[in-house]
């Protein structure tokens, strides 16, 4: 690293890469992969997301992140759309992921009973 300008260039490029893009179906999927998430089964969840997208020929980036603090609701995934709306799905299972890909990613309908604000979460 030689200068701030170089850092800024990386920053600009990275921000662009992280942007939710139209050619990616207008979505970005982020899965919680800290110890809590992995212990609750985040690895099969990530695999299911990838398989389901591949099966349907859909290009949506699947990324990972750390712990947001509600470890008891793991495995969790955020789906961010191109207008910046974030939907947090909780207590995922491969079956739930299949439905989320079908309903949310393909058909744009939030599967509200799996989200963090569903009654299931009991806040």
């Amino acid at each position: 690293m030689k200068s701030i300008a170089e850092l800024d260039a990386i920053r600009k490029k990275a921000l662009n890469n992280m942007k939710v893009k139209k050619e990616n179906q207008g979505y970005r999927i982020i899965i919680g992969m800290a110890t809590c998430g992995i212990a609750a089964g985040a690895v099969p969840i990530m695999n299911t997301f990838k398989e389901q997208l591949e099966k349907r020929n859909i290009k949506v980036p699947v990324s990972m992140t750390g712990c947001v603090g509600v470890c008891r609701l793991e495995p969790m995934a955020d789906i961010i759309d191109d207008s910046g709306n974030k939907t947090t799905y909780i207590m995922l299972t491969p079956e739930k992921v299949e439905r989320i890909v079908q309903n949310h990613i393909i058909n744009g309908q939030v599967v509200s009973e799996y989200t963090i604000n569903s009654t299931q979460a009991i806040f």
Binding site: V70, N117, F123
Partner: peptide, 17 residues
């Protein structure tokens, strides 16, 4: 596509946060 998506379902919107 059919349907509408009302309401905020991000984790930041939960009372916990």
């Amino acid at each position: 596509l059919s349907g509408n998506n009302e309401g905020n379902n991000s984790y930041e919107s939960a009372d916990f946060f």
